[in-house]
Design a protein around this nucleic acid. Structure first.
Length: 901
RNA sequence: GCCCAGAUGGCGGAAUAGGUAGACGCGCUGGUCUCAAACACCAGUGGAUUCACUUCCAUGCCGGUUCGAUCCCGGCUCUGGGUACCA
């Protein structure tokens, strides 16, 4: 009977819907397991074959856990607010809601064909008012809380107000505006004038993780620094907890490392340097307190407030000129051009240890956003200070014995300290500690921990995002009443920003009932994606983000699968958001994602044809060296095993209609290269096409077979026939011309061994995310069963169950043919048994110098002594490793026989 | 520059505790079926050597530990990813 995958897959997909097979409910009697995919942004291009990779892996894991008796939550939704839909709206006038809806429907259609076990009843969309109500709600909570640095948790802002009233006489004299200004310094969601990444082309600010090398991640447009009044989230308050929390997580070391670097904790000291002839003191941060004796100048960031305070009249003109120059440069220019620039302020600071007067400079190599925006420069032991000192001819004092600083600085934190008064003779580490103690005693500074992690800028000058539940009276921000949520995104006629105002300025009556203006910015993409995993637990609740009961049961995500590109964005914001809700007592777990697996990217595999320049003649890849050719991308869908389908090529576009070819062995061989999968490279492979040609089960298997889940790899449709052939083989083994051909025979010992070997392997592979090797195991299994002409249900039924995570449609069909009840999804994963795996006789190969010389056959129950004796009979000495069962004997000439497992 | 990951046949990749390197698949070669092709099935397939048995060489390079190293250690080369004046 032919393997009609289309009929089979359609039949079971229908069955699953009709029987609500994948509907999940909390069930206190069963252990829960939460498997989550990073939900997609529904783009207009639809899914390509790379997108489902992680979804298939998580689906296999979910189905496996369900077979193992867990109550598995496995939901899917859409991250449906975002820039591309809005850019598209500006170009075409189509409302983002319309295009987003259309894209979502397309995604759903594609996903449905692959046979995922999602509970669609729990779907969430970030642009749905019922969903974003809770995004706005969380923002209100952040506005109404501050971070208590003593309790190390978020506390109600009312507590802080009460404390000010009691303890601070100043507070009671303040008016509303002044009080609000002060509270803004504490609120977790706060307004501030901050230096932001402004992208002119996108007309909005971007978060640090949305910018790469001075260009926007989305679109690749230049980004400049600008000071703007923005909503921010005090993520930095959670820096220490975000760092510490990593220890408890089952994430890859690489990802944890990335987050650690992003948080960037560094221990050091904050010190004050007096300025000559002024009351101003410059506060600086350093991790090298030991080097104070070598400080020969100071540098201020151009944006630092100190600049105006210390600059002398004589130098004002030069400084202003420099500041103007710095301001004009874009971030990208600054990165590209690393030349040393700077200007002298005319002022001198006093080195508190040497008493020497040292000049104060301004330079853009000092960042305003880190530490205090001012540094003490130690040219001998910091390469940046060194370059600056060389450029301006400043003094360089070596502080470490044997360090040659005539050509470059010595940055390493090791060696014996010299030229440093009371620190002389100490090791660097010792000297740092000693100096910190000294600074504290003398009252010129204190020990301080700094973090690289910045607060998240939370305003976007866009339309297609969550509106802020904020209105203004006399320029003071107030949050709306929670009862009024959701604050619906208004309809507007024109999506373009106007006269520097965000698009919401185009909305009519964008005011409260009382007529107060509402915030014009909207929230960024990460707002909606920061707590979506909580909403899946209780998606229809309109009284709470998630009910206490639902959260107590589902707790947090046990397995999270997604791309590594979210390492410093989503995965930081989500953890922050969750910790905040944890402080409020809304959720019971402090970390949202217990285990995280990063699936690799699927790259495209492009094909080329070679056109002889100036002609319409194409030569096969092997012959291209003979001519002056031009490489042209050709649609991978008209190429098979790198052989071009010439007829399809001619029909592809009119320009190739009359093409001529020079062939190799009667074939046109294409060249190939690994590139990003994109339309312009003609290398996009669509999952629908694969499903149409081979079926979903083949696609699922093949995506796993491609290679290790975490590794990036190119998509190459070439190998898919082998996987499809395997499914056909399995099918043919248990069917004949009349349909299923099954018996109730008792399986042979060999067949039981094959089955149990495979069960053990499948279990091990899934537990260890080694999905690619499982495919091989199934292939071997089917080959072995085929060799013994196995037709018994007693083998096929358990085989169908272990196959179900990978090829659910085929598994259902086989399971039911064996008389299985209900759905294979509710079957029990069979337990493998050691007794079937033991062979009646074992061969112990004996190696001579690592090569098999001869073998002795031993019974399975052979004892160590027997093997020893057998080996000894060969007149060699025997030594058996402790506590191991023998498997192999390796003989080394004249010496030892090792018996190893 | 710094941090991380990786390097195995013509290709994707196996080797799950240091123990017969190259599972499984693709491709290729030969065969069966066919008028023929496609499909399917069977066999072979790291390199060198030999008619053959065999032997030697092989997991990026150099060295070390070990009876034994793709695996552990030290040094290098290259590739991919992250990050970048973070004081």
């Amino acid at each position: 009977m032919e393997y009609k995958f289309r009929e089979i897959e359609e039949k079971w997909q229908k069955y699953w819907i009709e029987n609500a097979t994948y509907k999940v409910e909390a069930d206190a009697k069963r252990p829960k397991f939460y498997v989550l995919d990073m939900f997609p942004y529904p783009s207009g291009a639809g899914l390509h074959v790379g997108h489902p990779l992680g979804y298939i892996a998580s689906d296999i894991y979910s189905r496996y856990k369900r077979l193992k008796g867990f109550n598995v939550l496995h939901p899917m939704g859409y991250d449906s607010y975002g820039l591309p839909a809005e850019q598209y709206a500006i170009q075409t006038g189509q409302h983002p809601a319309v295009t987003t809806e259309k894209n979502i429907n397309r995604y759903r259609e594609q996903l449905d064909k692959i046979g995922f076990s999602y509970d669609w009843n729990r779907e969430v969309r970030t642009c749905d008012p019922k969903y974003y109500k809770w995004t706005q709600w969380a923002f209100i909570q952040m506005f109404n809380h501050y971070y208590d640095t003593e309790k190390c948790k978020a506390m109600p802002i009312a507590d802080l107000v009460a404390r000010f009233e009691k303890e601070d006489p100043e507070w009671n004299k303040m008016n509303a505006k002044e009080r609000e200004k002060r509270l803004m310094q504490y609120r977790i969601a706060y307004l501030a004038d901050t230096k932001v990444n402004w992208c002119e082309q996108l007309g909005t600010v971007l978060a640090n993780d949305e910018v790469s090398e001075g260009l926007s991640v989305r679109g690749g447009f230049p980004v400049e620094q600008r000071v703007m009044r923005q909503w921010c989230l005090r993520v930095s308050a959670y820096a220490e907890r975000l760092l510490k929390g990593l220890d408890s997580l089952d994430w890859s070391e690489a990802l944890k490392e990335t987050q650690k670097n992003w948080i960037g904790r560094s221990e050091g000291a904050e010190m004050r340097f007096g300025v000559k002839g002024s009351d101003t003191e410059l506060e600086i941060f350093t991790t090298r307190a030991d080097t104070v004796f070598g400080v020969t100048f100071m540098v201020l960031a151009p944006e630092s407030d100190y600049v105006a305070q210390v600059t002398t009249k004589e130098q004002r003109h030069d400084v202003d000129e420099y500041l103007a120059m710095v301001k004009k440069r874009t971030e990208r220019e600054r990165i590209a051009d690393r030349r040393v620039t700077g200007v002298f302020t005319g002022a001198y600071a006093v080195n508190p240890l040497t008493g020497k007067e040292i000049p104060i400079y301004v330079s853009d190599y000092v960042l305003s956003g880190y530490g205090t925006g001012a540094i003490m420069a130690v040219p001998a032991h910091d390469s940046r200070d060194y370059a600056f000192a060389k450029h301006f001819g400043l003094e360089i004092v070596p502080l470490i014995e044997g360090a040659d600083v005539s050509e470059e600085s010595y940055d390493a934190k090791e060696g014996k300290v010299i030229n440093s008064g009371f620190l002389n003779g100490m090791e660097v580490k010792e000297a740092i500690a000693e100096m910190k103690k000294y600074i504290k005693e003398k009252g010129i500074g204190q020990v301080k921990v700094n973090y690289r992690l910045r607060d998240a800028i939370f305003s976007r000058q866009r339309y297609w995002g969550e509106p802020f539940p904020i209105y203004y009276i006399d320029g003071v921000a107030y949050v709306m009443d929670e009862e009024k949520l959701p604050l619906l995104l208004p309809e507007i006629a024109d999506f373009k920003p106007k006269a520097g105002q965000p698009p919401l300025a185009n909305a009519e009556n964008w005011t409260t009932e009382e007529g107060y203006p509402i915030e014009l910015n909207t929230m960024p993409g990460f707002a909606g994606s920061s707590a979506y995993y909580l909403r899946y637990m209780d998606p229809h609740n309109d009284k709470a983000l998630v009910s206490r009961e639902a959260n107590d049961y589902w707790r947090n995500v046990d397995l999270y699968i997604g791309g590594t590109e979210h390492a410093t964005g989503h995965l930081i914001y989500s953890r922050f958001w969750n910790k905040f809700l944890y402080d409020l007592g809304v959720v019971c777990e402090e970390e949202p994602f217990k285990k995280l697996v990063n699936q690799g990217m699927i790259q495209g595999r492009s094909n080329f044809v070679y056109r002889i320049k100036g002609t319409n003649r194409y030569v096969s890849a092997g012959l291209k060296e003979k001519y002056d050719t031009q490489e042209i991308h050709v649609d991978v869908n008209i190429v098979s095993n790198d052989v071009l389908d010439i007829e399809k090529f001619k029909a592809w576009t009119p320009e190739y209609k009359d093409a001529e070819f020079e062939l190799e062995d009667g074939k046109y061989i294409c060249g190939w290269a690994v590139e990003k999968m994109s339309k312009s490279m003609f290398n996009v492979v669509n999952p629908d096409d694969i499903v149409e040609r081979y079926g979903a089960d083949t696609l699922r298997f093949y995506e796993m077979f491609l290679g290790p889940l975490e590794q990036s790899k190119p998509w190459d449709t070439n190998g898919i026939d082998g996987v499809h052939r395997f499914l056909k083989k399995l099918w043919n083994l248990y069917t004949d011309d009349n349909g299923f051909a099954l018996t109730d025979d008792e399986p042979t010992a060999e067949q039981m061994k094959t089955l149990h070997k495979t069960i053990k392997k499948v279990e091990w592979d899934i537990e260890n995310f080694s999905f690619n090797t499982t495919v091989a195991a199934f292939m071997i299994c089917v080959n072995e069963l085929g060799a013994s002409k196995c037709h018994t249900k007693k083998i096929l039924k358990p085989l169908a169950v272990i196959l179900a995570p990978y090829a659910p449609h085929m598994a259902e069909e086989l399971y039911h043919a064996c008389g299985g009840e209900g759905t294979v999804c509710d079957a029990e994963f069979p337990q493998w048994e050691e007794k079937y795996l033991v062979e009646s006789t074992k061969k112990y190969p004996i190696s001579f110098n690592g090569k098999v010389k001869f073998q002795i056959e031993m019974p399975a129950e052979a004892t160590r002594e027997a093997i020893e004796a057998a080996a000894l009979a060969d007149e060699r000495t025997v030594k058996i490793l402790e506590g191991k069962q023998p498997k192999k004997i390796i003989v080394v000439p004249g010496k030892i026989v090792n018996v190893v497992i």
